Every structure is written in C-alpha cells, then in structure tokens.
Amino acid sequence: MVQPAPPEFLRVYQPHLRYYLIDEGRYTDEELISKQTPLSGIFGVENAGHSWEALQQAVDRIVEIVKADPNKDRVDKIVTRWIKRHLQRVAPKARLNLDRMSSLVEDRNMLAENLENLVKKERLEGRQEGRQEGRQEGRQEGDRRALEEKRKTVRHLLSFGVLSNDQIAVATGLSVDEIVKLRIEDKH
C-alpha cells in the first residue's frame, strides 16, 4: 500500500497484514435475517435507521441472537456496550437514559421504554414544528394578501388622478417608492 514501492532494502520492514473483510453493504436485509449471528444483528441495527420502530425490531432480534449464543454473557457485554454507543451517536440530542443498562438481554424492557419515549417525543416535536411552520406560512400568506390588497387600493386611487404619491402613501401605508413603481407599471 506504500506508493511508490519502497527501495529493496526497506521492503523487509514493510508490514504484511492479513484481514478478513466483511462488507456490510453487500448483504441484503433478507440475507442478514437468515444469519443468526451477533454481527448480522449489529448490521440489522445499523440498517434500521429509517424508523425507531424498525430499530426496536432490530434490537429485539439481536437480543434473541445473544440469548442463543453459547458465549451469551461475553457477547451480551460487547453488544450492550456497542448499542449504547451506537444510540448515542444516532440520537445525540435524545438524552437516552442508558447509563444503568448493563445487559441488553436483561435490560431489554428499559431500552424499549427509552425508544418508545423517544418516538413519542419526536412525534410531539414534529407536530409542534409542523404547527409552527403552518403559522409562519399563514403569516406570510396573510402578509402577501395584505400587500396585494394595498396595491389594488393604490391602483384604484391612482385611477382618480387627483391624489399625490405622498397622499396615497399615507392612505395605504406603502412607501412613496412603491407608489411610483405602481404608477409606472400602470402606464405600461
């Protein structure tokens, strides 16, 4: 991997590493489900990012895999540590209460409750955000309509031809510049 290749006298110091590649992206969801290994369970949790419900299902699956593993205690510790870190990385603002969780198998209900509360909280925040966006859009639409009504009023007042730009500006609340622009637009 060293490019360009080192001189001959340094090649003896070049490390020769062997590795076993597990390419997560090459597995379909069906293939992962068919493999009952802790690693397939971890991949399932990582791929369940599209919803909290899918994440809960993936966690339930990995718990069953860990329960069936001959090295259950050791695997449980490793997977529990990993899942706590994973959830903190996936939802850093969620403030999940995972400090007391020491075993995924034993504390499955605690994790499920945390995920359920997170889902409820996100839905509530989503609704509030939606309402806020709706109000903002409503205000903008109201402002746009009010401006259009003022312009309509200005055009009507301009049709009389007796009022000055200053008088129309005072009557409508628009600036003199806007009145002048509308006067020019009406001439074209």
Results as ranks from 00 to 15, higher is better:
M1A: 14
M1Q: 14
A5W: 06
V12F: 15
Q14P: 01
H16C: 09
E24C: 08
G25F: 05
E31H: 01
I33F: 07
Q36E: 08
G41M: 05
F43Y: 03
G44Y: 00
A48Q: 11
H50Y: 05
S51K: 00
A58K: 03
A58F: 00
D60N: 10
I62Y: 02
E64G: 06
K72F: 03
K77E: 10
V79C: 12
T80L: 03
L87N: 00
V90H: 03
A91V: 05
A91E: 07
P92I: 02
A94V: 13
L98H: 09
R100E: 14
R100G: 05
R100A: 08
V105S: 09
N109Q: 07
E113C: 09
N114Y: 10
L115A: 07
E116C: 06
E116A: 09
L124A: 08
G126C: 04
G126E: 15
R131V: 02
Q132K: 02
G134P: 04
R135C: 06
Q136R: 04
R139T: 03
E141K: 12
G142K: 09
G142V: 11
R144E: 14
R145F: 03
A146Y: 02
A146W: 11
H156Q: 07
S159R: 14
I168T: 08
A169D: 03
G173P: 10
V180H: 00
K181Y: 02
E185W: 06
E185D: 12
H188D: 00
